[in-house]
Write a protein that binds this DNA or RNA. Structure first.
Length: 148
DNA sequence: GCCAACGTTGGC
DNA sequence: GCCAACGTTGGC
């Protein structure tokens, strides 16, 4: 079982949205490194939900990976902002996972707190300039976050 | 709004 | 394959 952290701008898709929908396909990732992490995810993995580009940014809750190796349907939708003309049905470029809501934390764990407690090695999201929207979280770090 | 830190594109 | 130009992310 592995732990991850996935980012979303709450004005685009928030943890409240996920709570309401219960499950969602995590579409729209168009970065190869992030996609490769999505490929590595396994059913039963847990991920922290991080709100980015908002005030204050931070971890707001937890979700579970419930289905893997899903072909991101938006890459084939010409009207979607995530449409990729260079992707083909036979060899889709973008794969993702289905996630399920687990919980909203009683208090947001803001980026400042995360920076104070963790080094960039322990938690990539505190690294300056990090823009990856999907990152792995080492087990020790994950357990510490869950105990905060 | 600014800008650092990327990733991508495309000419050569 | 190099690299300049450009676009995006996301904290501040």
């Amino acid at each position: 079982m592995n732990y991850w952290l996935i980012k979303s701008e709450p004005q685009v898709y928030s943890i409240e949205d996920l709570k309401r929908e219960n499950t969602t396909i995590w579409d729209g990732v168009r970065n190869y490194q992030a996609r490769n992490f999505l490929k590595q995810m396994q059913k039963g993995d847990l991920a922290f939900f991080y709100h980015s580009n908002c005030k204050p940014p931070g971890i707001v809750g937890l979700l579970e990976i419930v289905e893997t190796n899903i072909i991101d349907p938006t890459q084939f939708e010409p009207k979607s902002p995530y449409f990729d003309a260079k992707s083909s049905i036979n060899q889709p470029r973008w794969q993702t996972v289905k996630v399920q809501f687990k919980q909203i934390f009683p208090a947001l764990i803001c980026l400042n707190t995360l920076k104070n407690r963790f080094s960039p090695e322990e938690l990539l999201v505190v690294k300056k300039g990090n823009r990856l929207s999907v990152v792995p979280v080492p087990e020790n770090t994950a357990k510490m976050i869950l105990n905060l």
